[in-house]
Amino acid sequence: MNDTEKIYSILNDLTGEDLTDKGDTNLFDTGLLDSMATVQLLLEIETEIGVEVPVSEFERSEWETPNKIIAKVGSLK
C-alpha cells in the first residue's frame, strides 16, 4: 500500500464511510471527524506511515479533506 491508500484506509476505518472517490469531502463540516477521531488519525498516521504529527501542527483548515491530509502528510515526510 502506498501512503495515499493507507490514508484512505485509515479514514474509511475512522468515519465508517468509503471516501476513496471523495477526496474533497470536508471531514469536519460534515461531522465525519470529531476531535477524538482526529487524535486517532494522528496516531494512525504515526504508526502506519511513520510521520509524527504533533497536535499543535494540526490546523483544521489544512487537514479538512482527504486530499489536504494526503498533501500535508506528504509535506511532513
Binding site: S35, V39, L42, V55, F58
Partner: peptide, 11 residues
C-alpha cells in the same frame, strides 16, 4: 480546551 486539553489528553 479542545486543542490543549481534550486532544492532548487523548493523544
Amino acid at each position: 480546551f479542545r486543542d490543549f486539553i481534550f486532544m492532548r489528553f487523548t493523544f
